[in-house]
Design a protein around this nucleic acid. Structure first.
Length: 255
DNA sequence: ATGGCAGCCATAGGCTGA
């Protein structure tokens, strides 16, 4: 059995104690982290290694930054999407236990009128082309991360209020569907789930307490991995801790 | 219509996140 997880920690500098606590409580095999917001020289590798995890990372000042933590050896690390020129550090991938693990932090997009939205769509289109290539090389592939896209209306607390907005707009959903069309499966929807299951809640206006959230953090599995997947859950526990990340971890279990 | 919370950088308040 192997457990793969993803968590947008919204600053690893602030959240490192919570990451270590969470890994102690949930000793997953692989944890993909987004929004480290740390340059590589400031990355807390020693503390993570002391907790029994190997780690690879690529970061920058203030924004973005991704990492893969693993109990098992990490091989063939690639930073970013080789097909996409990008100033941002948003992707890191590696081979672990024969699986290609891709950790991604999809651009937020801000709003449909923003240049950042166009960047998001271009970024996703290139991610598609690259993942398509990667799947031919690595049939056992997992794409984990913060997609900044809620796939369906049931992934949004108030679909009417959100209609057409950033995170749910049809072009973004179409881009996610194109990824899924590469025979990837949203592992969360392989299983019966509670209604109104979300992975992000706004810090403002009691978002978490009122469960006003969206499900934007996903674990997509290629066919051979989906065939082994026995569960996928969102862990809301660390969202209840003091000074939490606004995202909750998502965990997929594979036989 | 705006800001609301949090983090960052920088040391005030603007930018970004989602």
């Amino acid at each position: 059995m192997i457990k793969l997880a993803t968590w947008n920690v919204n600053s690893l500098k602030v959240r490192l104690p919570q990451v270590l606590q969470w890994l102690g409580d949930n000793p997953v095999d692989v944890l993909c982290i987004q929004e480290t917001k740390l340059t590589d020289d400031k990355f807390p590798a020693a503390e993570i290694e002391a907790a029994g995890y190997q780690v690879v990372y690529t970061g920058q000042k203030t924004y973005n930054g991704v990492a893969i933590l693993s109990k098992h050896p990490i091989d063939a690390v690639v930073k970013n999407n080789p097909l996409f020129e990008d100033d941002h550090q948003r992707i890191i991938s590696a081979t672990i236990q024969g699986m290609r693990i891709v950790c991604a932090y999809v651009p937020n997009g801000q709003s449909l009128e923003s240049d950042k939205y166009q960047y998001k769509l271009k970024w996703l289109a290139s991610l598609h082309d690259w993942i398509q290539q990667e799947l031919t090389l690595h049939p056992q592939l997992a794409l984990l991360g913060d997609y900044n896209i809620a796939p369906e209306d049931r992934d949004v607390h108030d679909p009417a209020a959100w209609e057409g907005m950033n995170l749910v707009s049809p072009p973004e959903r179409a881009a996610l569907q194109k990824l899924i069309d590469l025979k990837l499966t949203d592992s969360f929807r392989m299983f019966e789930q509670a209604e109104k299951s979300f992975s992000w809640w706004d810090y403002r206006q009691l978002g978490f307490r009122l469960n006003k959230g969206v499900r934007i953090d996903h674990i997509l599995l290629s066919e051979p991995l989906a065939a082994r997947c026995t569960s996928c859950v969102i862990d809301r526990v660390p969202r209840k801790w003091e000074q939490p990340s606004d995202h909750a971890p998502v965990i997929a279990t594979l036989d």
